[in-house]
């Protein structure tokens, strides 16, 4: 009754008078019955204390025991842990411990151990799992062809080497600008040249040719895609090769002052040697040419400089050419 009274009091101030009286009459009709049943209750106007409600018991689902307890000893582990996953103690039936502790204390166990969750695990790559997966992959592999076992053998048939690089990183994008780089290399001796073309080719490629190893290398990275760079490298090779066989008209105007090396064939010393050899020769008789070994020794002497070996060789050749008997 006290409750109902206080409630009506509160409402009365807000509601209209007519409604209020009507409600009062209604409540007065009801009250006698209540009083008969219940004992007298004190009217407390001020307290709004609700009756004590029993807090609802939070129903907790029973936590299932770890799965590792129910695992058979001879289970198929590759089925229990098929892919990469953070460590979970309930799935791994190993008594693992991880963590640094002071001397004498046991390391933290595998349950609620964040350290074990951090480190990348290889539980899905156990030796049986690797063997199993490799067996499945084996049918996609092909053997290395016979007859190409050593480098010397494959060099004969496949002289060109193309080096490309793939990059793999943990990023949302698979593009890496470095992957566009293509290196094409081959031995210069695998291309066929004549003397003029070889000289011109080496001038065209510049420092892409390594003199010591006789290897020509093109590194291209100016196009955005790898395919384009590969095509560009082959284009460079082709263009240089074909251009080297072209003799421009101005190339004939190369004078003796422009020569990098001394060539016996186009110099005064050849004429002098011929003159000496053809001394007093009859008219119409075949001209005697100086021997090529003599020419070589002269070239060596002038190109490499005077040293004991070159001088001795030159001396021998001169003696041979002039038919001077050695002492």
């Amino acid at each position: 009754m006290a409750n109902s009274l206080t409630r009506f009091w509160g409402q009365g101030s807000l509601q209209k008078h007519v409604v209020q009286t009507g409600l009062r009459g209604f409540s007065s009709q009801q009250n006698p019955e209540v009083e008969e049943e219940e004992e007298f209750r004190v009217l407390s106007l001020r307290t709004v204390k609700q009756q004590f409600q029993k807090r609802r018991e939070v129903k907790k689902d029973p936590v299932t025991p770890p799965r590792s307890n129910r695992m058979a000893v001879d289970q198929d582990w590759t089925a229990a842990w098929p892919g990469p996953r953070s460590f979970h103690p309930a799935s791994v039936p190993l008594p693992l411990r991880q963590g640094f502790t002071e001397r004498g204390a046991a390391a933290p166990s595998k349950f609620a151990n964040a350290e074990l969750m951090k480190i990348p695990n290889f539980l899905h790559l156990t030796p049986p799992a690797i063997r199993q997966q490799c067996e499945a992959l084996k049918k996609f592999c092909t053997p290395w062809p016979k007859g190409l076992e050593t480098e010397a053998k494959w060099q004969r048939h496949f002289p060109v080497e193309v080096i490309t690089t793939d990059y793999l990183q943990a990023l949302p994008t698979i593009r890496n600008p470095e992957a566009r780089r293509v290196t094409v290399s081959l031995k210069l001796s695998d291309l066929k040249f004549d003397a003029h073309a070889r000289d011109k080719f080496l001038r065209l490629v510049g420092d892409r040719y390594d003199k010591d190893t006789d290897i020509l290398t093109f590194v291209t990275d100016r196009c955005p895609l790898r395919k384009q760079n590969y095509d560009y490298a082959l284009y460079l090779l082709t263009a240089c090769y074909h251009e080297s066989f072209v003799t421009e008209p101005w190339e004939a105007t190369k004078s003796e002052a422009d020569m990098e090396v001394y060539l016996f064939g186009r110099n005064k010393s050849k004429l002098s040697a011929e003159e000496i050899l053809n001394w007093n020769a009859a008219e119409g008789a075949p001209k005697v040419e100086p021997s090529p070994s003599y020419g070589q020794s002269v070239e060596q002497l002038i190109n490499e400089g005077e040293n004991e070996y070159n001088l001795t060789k030159y001396k021998e050749e001169v003696k041979k050419m002039l038919n001077i008997a050695s002492q």
Binding site: A112, A114, K118, L171, T173, I174
Partner: peptide, 20 residues
């Protein structure tokens, strides 16, 4: 616990300890 973020290829794996 701390939240552990692992990035493998293009996936992100997040590991953590959660109270029941």
């Amino acid at each position: 616990s701390e939240i552990i973020i692992k990035r493998q290829h293009n996936t992100i794996r997040i590991a953590a300890l959660i109270r029941q």
